[in-house]
């Protein structure tokens, strides 16, 4: 075998091994790399609710209540299995609306209300002009996941 071939095998084998090893390590850290938790995970006690955590899910339709003359807002976050009420005071991002994904950072209170100090809107991968979005309307699911199925 020529030294060139030996090197070829060493390089390709090394890179393959590294990638596999790296992916295995990342897979092991999977749960630690998660940016946010779902309401089910939080309410079932799967994750520690001590300290600051991030709660992610959909803003339940019809659940947003703005308190007049203040920046206070209250809404429910759902993963279509469980719901958590979130209280927040501050400016909401442009993409925040009912039926859209959202990630909130804060603490879970003993009464299971999540008090957030940051609200981020999560965008989905769909991009389309408004006319197309309008024609797709009506295909949406039940109005409120928190009121109906739970």
């Amino acid at each position: 075998m020529k030294p060139r071939h030996k090197k070829l095998i060493a390089v390709s084998g090394g890179v393959t091994l590294l990638v596999v090893a790296g992916l295995l390590v990342l897979n092991a850290f999977r749960s630690n790399l998660v940016y946010f938790r779902s309401p089910t995970e939080i309410l079932s006690g799967e994750v520690s609710t001590q300290g600051v955590l991030r709660l992610g899910g959909m803003v339940d339709k019809g659940s947003v209540k703005k308190i007049p003359d203040s920046l206070k807002v209250e809404f429910k976050v759902t993963d279509f299995q469980k719901c958590i009420t979130v209280r927040y005071e501050g400016i909401l991002p442009d993409l925040f609306r009912e039926g859209q994904g959202v990630i909130t950072q804060g603490r879970l209170q003993p009464d299971k209300v999540f008090v957030a100090d940051q609200v981020l809107a999560k965008h989905d991968e769909k991009y389309m002009p408004p006319e197309v979005a309008n024609s797709l309307k009506g295909k949406a699911g039940p109005k409120s996941a928190c009121e109906t199925s739970l």
Partner: peptide
């Protein structure tokens, strides 16, 4: 591959 698949493997703020 981590960059490419990160949005599928983990809950991320970044969209898929």
């Amino acid at each position: 591959p981590v960059i490419h698949f990160s949005v599928q493997w983990w809950n991320t703020l970044h969209q898929p």
